[in-house]
Design a protein around this nucleic acid. Structure first.
Length: 316
DNA sequence: CGATCAGCCCGCCATT
DNA sequence: GAAATGGCGGGCTGAT
């Protein structure tokens, strides 16, 4: 598969301007960096209402979908009852032809209506997840993921998760270097991991669980360089391992170990950005057993190596 | 790299 | 009876 160049974005009635802007920002042509061509299209060219109130003048009709390697369905302000049959047919054609098809938020409903999601694991905005699952029982809806890459079909969460989704697509087909460069230009994190659960519940629940865990989390962050096991943390929280894991999940949305690794990566990135300690030393201070482990986790989160990350993000 | 061993974590269920 | 607890089994991931 050759990396996409021609990108077509279907703009629905009542398009969410935020998503529109993000797609425009990521897939804008950048001389010397990326020769993306982004075509905004609608069933009929002309003004399309947006959630800003002001309409957007859309230039292309659905023939733009036929020429695209990557087709985005932008979200509208609410799950649509279904755009016209011509739109659904054009999406199916693009997919059959081999184009990658992607949508997030309310846009996922359009892909579902086109029948492109049947039997797949997909995600959407957490507020829409139940509705999506109800309307399309053939889908496995994961309300926690930020995006799910199904290869030829990719789905993403709420409006702002479009940035994660779009950058992911760039990373997948054009490499981490370009994705990181775009992220840096746009001043957004090159990659967020973890699901959207952290955005579903309050970050620190006001009820007992979050309160009691907050101290423990702060303590753990202060001792990241030490070997921390789940059993030790549970003991500190005066809970059995089993209950601790349950409470931890409920309060943070992550499992204890996953949370620890995420904290350690945060620490490592901070050290890489603000110090010139060697990778070995950074790994030690962040609590990784070795530089090899750090490199491996780093690749998984950022798609790059610690040194490459430093070269791009070091504050000098 | 692949093997191996430790530790994680989730479903299940009896108990509180 | 509903809800939380925590022990157990074991598939699975992660570290060495």
């Amino acid at each position: 598969m050759t990396p996409f160049r021609a990108v077509a974005a279907y703009v629905p009635q009542g398009a969410v301007a935020l998503a529109l802007g993000m797609a425009g920002a990521v897939f804008r042509p950048r001389p010397g960096l990326a020769d993306f061509r982004l075509a905004l299209c609608a069933e009929r060219p002309g003004p399309v209402p947006t959630d800003l109130g002001a309409p957007l003048a859309v230039e292309h009709d659905l023939t733009a979908l036929a020429a695209a390697d990557l087709v985005l369905v932008l979200p509208g302000t609410a799950p649509p009852d279904g755009p016209g049959a011509p739109v659904l047919a054009a999406l199916r054609d693009a997919h059959r032809r081999g184009a990658t098809v992607a949508a997030h938020c309310a846009g996922v409903f359009v892909l579902a209506a086109a029948g492109l999601l049947e039997g797949r694991r997909v995600t959407t905005h957490w507020q829409y997840a139940a509705e999506l699952a109800r309307r399309y029982p053939g889908l496995a809806v994961d309300p926690d993921a930020l995006y799910i890459d199904g290869g030829d079909v990719v789905t993403g969460a709420g409006a702002a998760a479009g940035m994660d989704l779009y950058l992911h697509l760039v990373r997948r087909e054009h490499g981490a270097a370009l994705a990181n460069e775009l992220a840096r230009t746009l001043v957004v994190p090159p990659h967020r991991d973890g699901g959207q659960r952290q955005y579903v519940a309050a970050p620190v629940p006001a009820d007992g669980d979050g309160e009691r865990l907050a101290d423990l989390l702060a303590w753990a962050r202060d001792h990241l360089d030490q070997r921390l096991t789940v059993d030790a943390l549970a003991a500190r929280a005066l809970m059995s391992r089993r209950s601790f894991i349950r409470h931890f999940r409920a309060a943070t949305g992550a499992t204890p170990h996953a949370w620890l690794v995420a904290q350690r990566l945060d620490r490592a990135e901070e050290l890489l950005e603000t110090t010139d300690l060697g990778v070995e030393e950074v790994a030690g201070r962040a609590g990784f057993g070795s530089a090899a482990v750090l490199r491996e986790r780093f690749a998984r989160r950022r798609g790059t190596s610690p040194r490459a990350y430093r070269r791009t993000f070091a504050r000098t």
